[in-house]
Amino acid sequence: MARLIWRVAPWAVVLALAAAWEIFAASGAVTPFMLPRLSVVLERIRADGASGELWQNLAYTLYRSFAGFFIAGALGIPLGILIGRNRAVRWLFDPLISVGFPMPKIAFLPIVTLWLGFHDVSKITMVVLDASFPVVTAAIAGTMSVERELLWSARNCGARGAALLREVVLPAALPQIFTGLQVALPIALIVAIVAEMKMGGVGLGGAMITATRFADSPGVFAGIVEIAVAGYVLVKLMAVLRRRLLLWHPEALAPATV
């Protein structure tokens, strides 16, 4: 019985919050401009969905985030492994990464726009620029923490060069690399949305900034709910994927967390 309560409690809290939003907004304590009723916002999302506008915006935002995210992964993972395994490459990239990692890359947005224009290329470039750092640093850390004994016994079995990297180093570093990807995905979304807000046009971020300009507060709150749901679903999907991919890892047995 007690266990059932703790299971139901989270949903009850979410429902209670939704109800509180609706009641508070309807009470007249704040103007509908400051906080439109939840039902109005949901109705707006439904209307946007019916007209197809929501799906178009969502598709563009996700396309930009994912394109940048995949490029960041495709560049970052091999680069990170290489840096972790090769001293010369490490010497070359280490200063770049230790300076670049803590920098707010978003400040380069106007420069990237200046170079690449207002199209998708500059938005995706911004996403790559921001999302690749966590991937690279995670791949370096994962590669460097592979146990020597594991490498030695693989060498004993005859693994060499690329096979050693692919068959031993990559799987052994995978838990940490995946953690890096899990950090990078929300960053990719954040950056894509900021870029859209700054440059305007199609996309969830662009739609929200347009709504702000026209003081269309149901539009703004609809955007928040849409983006929050999208972020939540993506993060949960990554957690599920992680458990599938890392079945051999002890933590796969533990319940998935945030």
């Binding site: 979304l189 807000m197 703004v220 928040i224 939540y232």
Partner: peptide, 22 residues
């Protein structure tokens, strides 16, 4: 914790327009 879990993955930049609205 349900709220933290729900809001943690939210791209925070989505809040920019609301804070301006408020």
């Amino acid at each position: 914790s349900p709220l933290v879990e729900m809001l943690y993955p939210m791209p925070k930049s989505a809040l920019i327009p609301v804070t301006v609205l408020w």
